[in-house]
């Protein structure tokens, strides 16, 4: 049991436990803050997979952008009289059965498949330079398209919300 494994299980536990509370707690604010922990756990898993740049992007974009946006959504769509913003749940029993069966099938499929593994060594160098080269050479079209998509999303969101 080396340090890598211990850190992996720590981040896995953080991610899965907080994700469980995201989808089960009745208080919307609590589940938003549990989502914060989930995003941090996923960023840690990215670091363990050697994706340092992606981990930082995960924290900046998800925690700094998307989560704040979601909290705004929660605040603006409730008549706030106290901190308890509650939400109901529906179809819990059938959903539990279906999702349990689905995840069981998925996990047994993933575990029993013989994946062709090629490289297992930890990459020593930072991935940022490599990602930048890829983005500006082979994936330049997707990069430009994503720029246009973000512009369209910005204008579209502003137009829809102003109506």
């Amino acid at each position: 049991m080396n340090l890598y494994n211990i850190i992996f299980y720590l981040f896995a536990a953080i991610t899965l436990v907080s994700a469980f509370f995201v989808v089960t707690t009745r208080n919307v604010i609590y589940s938003a803050f549990n989502l914060l922990l989930t995003f941090f756990g996923v960023a840690g898993i990215y670091v363990l997979l050697g994706a340092d740049f992606l981990a930082v992007v995960q924290i900046i974009v998800y925690v700094g952008g998307i989560l704040i946006l979601l909290l705004f959504g929660v605040m603006l769509t409730n008549k706030i009289v106290n901190v308890q913003i509650r939400t109901g749940a529906t179809q819990i029993l059938p959903a539990t059965i279906a999702v349990g069966a689905f995840s069981g099938i998925l996990i047994s499929l993933l575990v029993n498949t013989e994946w062709k593994k090629v490289g297992t060594a930890l990459p020593g160098a930072s991935t940022t330079a490599n990602l930048g080269m890829l983005m500006m050479n082979e994936y330049i079209l997707i990069f430009e398209l994503l720029g246009i998509l973000l512009l369209v999303a910005l204008i579209g969101a502003a137009t829809i919300a102003r109506k």
Binding site: L16, A19, V23, V28, I45, L110
Partner: peptide, 29 residues
């Protein structure tokens, strides 16, 4: 396996939550 479990939690959130913002959180998961 972690990703599969996270995906299942996301589906569970989308299916069971009533609040539309919580459904969005499931999509993010």
């Amino acid at each position: 396996v972690i990703s599969a479990v996270l995906f299942s939690f996301g589906i569970f959130g989308i299916v069971t939550r009533k609040n539309a913002v919580m459904v969005l959180m499931g999509v993010e998961l």
